[in-house]
Design a protein around this nucleic acid. Structure first.
Length: 146
DNA sequence: GCCAACGTTGGC
DNA sequence: GCCAACGTTGGC
């Protein structure tokens, strides 16, 4: 299983809207960047991701799961663009801010820091665990969402 | 709202 | 295939 991070501007598509979609999930559409699209093509059902609020908030607010693999982006006729569907799994106990990610030496290689503008990014397992720890998720909580 | 960083486009 | 111009993202 791989880990990812999805960025969204909360006033366009926020965590609350994502949660409201429940089990059905929602297309992660509108991505018009090849790198980000390629990452989505790599995703498998069951992969986990962080839901990050950019522009406002600047923090990881929740955990999501990939519930449909890459398919055509319904918001365009341009067949170059594909997207996955994701569904909300849970809130993080306490949001992890960009500031605190930058302040953590263990996370200095995280794409969130190094590739600021990439809206869909891979997260290494060690980074996933570290951010989960910072979010106040203990081992029990992590197991509970599996 | 500004602007730096970076991706994309298009002329040559 | 280079690179200048332009557009967009996203932190501040």
């Amino acid at each position: 299983m791989k880990y990812w991070l999805f960025k969204s501007e909360p006033f366009k598509w926020g965590w609350d809207k994502q949660k409201a979609k429940g089990e059905i999930g929602e297309e992660w559409d509108g991505v018009r960047n090849y790198q980000a699209r390629n990452f989505m093509r790599e995703m498998k059902i069951g992969d986990r991701g962080f839901f990050y609020h950019s522009n406002e908030g600047l923090e990881v607010v929740g955990i999501v799961e990939v519930c449909a693999e890459a398919h055509c982006d319904s918001t365009t006729d341009d067949e170059r663009w594909e997207c996955v569907d994701i569904k909300a799994i849970c809130d993080v106990p306490s949001p992890v801010t960009l500031k605190s990610v930058k302040a953590n030496p263990k996370l200095s290689d995280m794409a969130l820091v190094t590739s600021m503008r990439l809206s869909v990014q891979p997260v290494k397992q060690a980074e996933w665990i570290e951010v989960c720890r910072m979010a106040g998720m203990d081992g029990k909580t992590l197991k509970a969402i599996k």
